[in-house]
Write a protein that binds this DNA or RNA. Structure first.
Lengths: 260, 260
DNA sequence: CTATCTTTGTGCACGCGTTCACAAAGACAT
DNA sequence: ATGTCTTTGTGAACGCGTGCACAAAGATAG
């Protein structure tokens, strides 16, 4: 520390990096596990290993929250659990509404990981009139027509969208109009929302596609390492490229060298 | 462009940025929609809007793949669909195995977004003997005991884990041992895998917690804007901090100033 | 009280990703 | 053929996130 005696310069003002926020739940999970085993303190090294991150990163992350550690000892588990919970807003109750009770919506409604962290499934909403009244995960499904009232009555500010892609934007608009300001979107659609509304996206298909990319790369390298004679995989069988030039016909098959 | 006449310097060598790879599926989706509407070409501006990104970013992303656009016109939709599909490895068939057929696993098995992109659910695996043989999404569930054989027989290289957290690491180890090199993990657990194996994590609870953080921040700012007299929300009711000092008893309640 | 040992908190440098802004490239009209 | 207009492709600057490496802080023992 170069500035010898600045007590606490700008720490904790307003602005925990987004990357840090995304890791806090990870730390919280690891800490909760330690807490259940009645472990009193952890070092940054141990906790980092449990959370699967670099210890320096963890220490820097915690430094944004304040100086909660004790040098030479580590962090007090219970105290950190409380501090992180409070920072994340988990000390209060968050009623959540799930819209679109298909396979995925029903699975989420049954998912135990929500209730354990202050999230409460307050309402299930679906557009199918036949589903109205059907209990899913012990909660009666309600119809989309009443969406506005349901959101208001339950004080829902977080909505989960598990509808088919075609309905997602419309549902989103209605949720926002009803007062929802945070949305977790499982539909494969780009949602547009007004400023002040947060959207997080979970896209199963995209995750698989990213894995496929790396998988393909691995397969290619492996083949190359085995000395297989393969042409550049980047260039295999490019179908006719329909540029405006060759689509229109004239000037279509132009020689490589421009005739003067 | 300062280097007047370099035809194609180092582009396309080996190394599409990870951030770009993560966006390619997004572009692909938007392009597929355009293709279905028989739109022949798009400008970077239009496509960027459809994908919800900045147009400069999109152009830079595409530049990593090669020069597939036509200045003054835009990009040929069909051609781009093919190029991105090939780059992502979607021109081949990817057999996928889902392990853990609970609510979520069943929902994924039924999810249509997979088949549409070259992913094929080749096997469903569960540890419950009672489930063996039960058809889910038209596929008979098989027992974990046969995991090795199932993976080998079907040439599965991508595994999806939807087990309870306690079983996730063990299942992961077995998948890797059987030859799986890409894993999509839905269990709230940090998986450790050997080098060469890719893991992507989807954690519903974490996503909600991140939303809660921002939601809390919004609520706080709103209250502050309304002029409500509130103490610093960061400091509300900190419970007794169990530092080693005050946990041990002696030297517990030390005065702020060290007695000489 | 002093010395030693452990672990935090953070300054610093580096690399990746994003964005701006513009020259080059091609289409299109005349 | 020449000029204008549109849109790409990318150099360059900037900002965020990561990780190293170390000094300061506190614990602990003698």
């Amino acid at each position: 520390m170069a500035t010898g005696r600045t007590h606490r310069p700008a720490t904790r003002s307003r602005g925990i990096p987004e990357a840090t926020v995304a890791r806090l739940p990870l730390y919280l999970r690891a800490l909760t596990a330690l807490s259940e085993r009645s472990v009193p303190t952890v070092s940054s090294e141990e906790l980092a290993a449990a959370a699967g991150v670099n210890s320096a990163k963890l220490r820097k992350d915690f430094s944004y929250l304040g100086s909660y550690g004790t040098r030479g000892v580590g962090y007090d588990v219970e105290y950190l659990v409380y501090q992180i919970s409070r920072e994340l807003g988990l000390t209060q109750d968050w009623p959540v509404a799930i819209v679109g009770i298909g396979n995925l919506g029903a699975a989420l409604a049954n998912y135990g990981g929500f209730a354990s962290r202050g999230f409460r499934v307050a309402a299930l909403i679906d557009a199918d009139p036949a589903m109205a009244g059907t209990p899913v995960a012990g909660i009666a499904v309600q119809h989309t027509d009443d969406l506005d009232r349901i959101i208001s009555d339950n004080g829902v500010s977080i909505g989960v969208i598990t509808t088919p892609p075609g309905a997602a934007q419309q549902v989103c608009d209605r949720l926002v109009a009803a007062g929802v300001t945070s949305i977790l979107n499982f539909a494969p659609t780009v949602l547009s929302v007004p400023d002040g509304v947060d959207v997080r996206k979970v896209d199963l298909s995209i995750e698989l596609q990213i894995l496929a990319f790396h998988e393909q790369r691995k397969a290619g390298e492996e083949a190359a390492a085995e000395g297989v004679a393969l042409e550049d995989p980047d260039e295999e069988a490019p179908p006719m490229r329909a540029t405006p030039a060759n689509r229109k016909g004239p000037d279509g098959d132009m020689p490589a060298v421009m005739p003067a």
